[in-house]
Each structure stands twice: as structure tokens, then as C-alpha cells.
């Protein structure tokens, strides 16, 4: 791999990310799957970095899961999105940031669709007025929350207590980065680093001391899909894709995986257990799996948050091997005491 070649591509795909003042919307599933990630995001941005990130309890799901499961039409999800934009406007914000990759993809798709078909935007305006008596303005700027952490990666590194370095060997941790499909594959120009060689997570890993692994199936989907997992008869193929990724990354002996999507960390984490049950195969050390993290969890770890405050006890694959390598202290007794 020629690193300079990647740098060239990364420099071609640098999007503008405003420094401050964002309207933040949560993901509907991340709060259950990775309960402290969003809380950590807000704590880091607001309290550690002193930025203005506003959220309101009045926002809802974007409808993305239903849209991708073909249970609601695009017009419905667009109207839901228009309502979120109306809330943003009401609270005086122009920069919109969402926690979920599928939301980010859907927002981008919506804004691009409206740009191509203004008559559709007019119809959604009418829908929103009829249903909610609200009017909306489009955001000036749309970001995914991982773009924000990417933007602040060096500020976080400056405050970091730990580095992604194996304290026993002194070598960087070997990190697999996995990007949610809807982050850049639909609109590569809206992503940091493009779709083939995304830089958004790689940049964080580099800034925090780790080493990025480029394995053959790096660009492959985690397999979640939507209907593909939600309907049991399709699950074998969802699982087979995750299996394919693990088989491909296995020779590189990764220490950990970082993701920026709601579904990917969940499936990369939970499917490892299912694969071990079905195939008797594990990919981590000593018969365990490879620990999987969200980027907020990793930001929290390097900044010295208590691992159990980051919700790492909710993972199927225990995070302890990674904590031990970095040298992050934790109380095993407190793991399940909240």
C-alpha cells in the first residue's frame, strides 16, 4: 500500500465541517445498543471542548429503518425529516448533525432529491404544514457525528490520557475501521476521504496513536442491511457477509474494530458470538472475539472516561483485552453495577 496515494485521495475529499453550533439529533437504535455513546459525544463536545451542541427531546426517528424496510414511502420519511429541520430552525441553528449513518444517508438523499426536484420539496412543505402546522428551512450544513469527532480529533488527542498503543510492546494497536455504507457510498463527495478509502475513522485512529489495517474486504458491508436482518429467513446471508469480513481481516490479527454506524458495531459484535456457536470459530485472542467499539467510545477511552460509564459492559465481546493493552484501569466488580 502506498500511503501517499491514499493521502492524495483524502485531500480530494475534504468536506467543510463548521467548527461549532450544531443541532444534534440522536439515533433511534444506538441508545439501546450503545447507550452511552451519544451521551459521551455530548459530554466531550460540550464540556471537554466547550462547543455548542443543542438537542431537543421533541425530535424523533428519521424513519430510516422503516424506509429501508419498505414499510413507509420516501415522502413520509421526507416529511419526518422536514419536521426535524423545522425544530432546528425554531431553536436558531443552521448546522445539523446526526448520530446515525442511515439518517445521514437519508438526509443527504433527501436534500439532493429536493435539489433535483424542487416540486417535491414544495409538496413536503405542504405536507408538513397540513400535518404539523410547521415550516422548515434546510440546514446550511449537514454533518454526521463522526465528522465532528474527526474534526476535533487533534483537540481530543491534546486532552487524551491514553493512546491507542500497546503498553506491553510499545507498538500501535492494530485497528480495523468500518464505515457504515450510507456514510459515503451513495454520495462520496459528502464524506471525509471518499467512499473507497474513507478517512473519517482512519484520521481518528492515526491521531490517537493506532495503526489502521487495510484488509481485502475493508469496503464490504457488515451485512446488516435492513430487511436482510429483520426477517429471519434472510439472516443467514446477513451473517455470511459479516463472516466474510472476519475471514478477510483474520490474518492481520486486529486488536480492535472501530465503527461509525449504528448497525455495524452491533452486528460485528454480536455475530462474532453467533459465528463461534455455529462454526466454532473465534477471531480474537485466547478464543475470544475482537472487541468492537463506536468512535465515541474510543474517544471516551483515550480521554480517560471510566469504561463502564461508556457502556462497554453492553458489548457481547468483552473490551477488557483492549483496556489491558492500553493500560486503562477498570474495576471488574463494577462491570455490571450501574
Amino acid at each position: 500500500m502506498i500511503y501517499q496515494g491514499k493521502q492524495k485521495i483524502w485531500s480530494d475529499y475534504q468536506k467543510e465541517i463548521p467548527d461549532d453550533h450544531y443541532f444534534y439529533v440522536r439515533s433511534c437504535i444506538r441508545q439501546n445498543l450503545f447507550p452511552a455513546s451519544e451521551k459521551t459525544f455530548l459530554d466531550i463536545t460540550r464540556n471537554k471542548l466547550g462547543k455548542d451542541f443543542f438537542e431537543t427531546e421533541h425530535h424523533t426517528t428519521c424513519g430510516g429503518i422503516a424506509y429501508h424496510c419498505d414499510t413507509i414511502p420516501q415522502e413520509t420519511s421526507m416529511t419526518i425529516i422536514a419536521r426535524q429541520f423545522a425544530l432546528m430552525q425554531k431553536y436558531g441553528y443552521e448546522n445539523y448533525v446526526c448520530s446515525c449513518i442511515t439518517s445521514f444517508g437519508l438526509y443527504t438523499e433527501t436534500l439532493e432529491t429536493w435539489r433535483e426536484f424542487p416540486e417535491l420539496e414544495a409538496r413536503i412543505k405542504e405536507n408538513l404544514w397540513k400535518t404539523c402546522k410547521l415550516e422548515f428551512a434546510k440546514p446550511k450544513y449537514l454533518a454526521h457525528a463522526s465528522d465532528i469527532i474527526y474534526k476535533y480529533r487533534n483537540l481530543i488527542a491534546a486532552q487524551a490520557k491514553y493512546k491507542l498503543i500497546n503498553r506491553h510492546t510499545g507498538k500501535p494497536l492494530r485497528v480495523v475501521e468500518h464505515i457504515g455504507c450510507h456514510y459515503g457510498k451513495m454520495f462520496p463527495s459528502k464524506s471525509v476521504g471518499g467512499a473507497e478509502y474513507p478517512y473519517v475513522l482512519a484520521g481518528m485512529i492515526e491521531a490517537w496513536g493506532g495503526e489502521v489495517i487495510d484488509y481485502p474486504e475493508r469496503r464490504h458491508c457488515c451485512g446488516y442491511g435492513f430487511r436482510q436482518y429483520h426477517i429471519r429467513s434472510n439472516r443467514g446471508y446477513s451473517l455470511a457477509n459479516t463472516y466474510k469480513k472476519f475471514e478477510s481481516m483474520e490474518p492481520y490479527k486486529p486488536d480492535m474494530i472501530i465503527t461509525n454506524c449504528p448497525g455495524c458495531p452491533y452486528f460485528l459484535d454480536r455475530w462474532q458470538y453467533v459465528i463461534s456457536e455455529m462454526e466454532g470459530k473465534t477471531y480474537g485472542e485466547n478464543g475470544h472475539g475482537i472487541p468492537v467499539f463506536t468512535y465515541e467510545e474510543v474517544a471516551g477511552l483515550v480521554m480517560g472516561y471510566n469504561p463502564w460509564d461508556l457502556g462497554l459492559q453492553m458489548h457481547q465481546i468483552g473490551p477488557e483485552p483492549v483496556l489491558d493493552k492500553i493500560g486503562i484501569p477498570y474495576d471488574p466488580q463494577a462491570k455490571y453495577l450501574l
Binding site: 429471519r232 429467513s233 439472516r235 443467514g236 446471508y237 451473517l239 455470511a240 463472516y243 466474510k244 453467533v274 459465528i275 456457536e277 455455529m278 462454526e279
Partner: peptide, 12 residues
């Protein structure tokens, strides 16, 4: 072994 009701799809 746990029975999940689905299995790895073979690759074509």
C-alpha cells in the same frame, strides 16, 4: 450448539 433457526449462506 445453539439453534438459531438460520445458518451461514454458502458463497456462490
Amino acid at each position: 450448539m445453539v439453534k438459531f433457526g438460520f445458518a451461514l449462506n454458502p458463497s456462490s
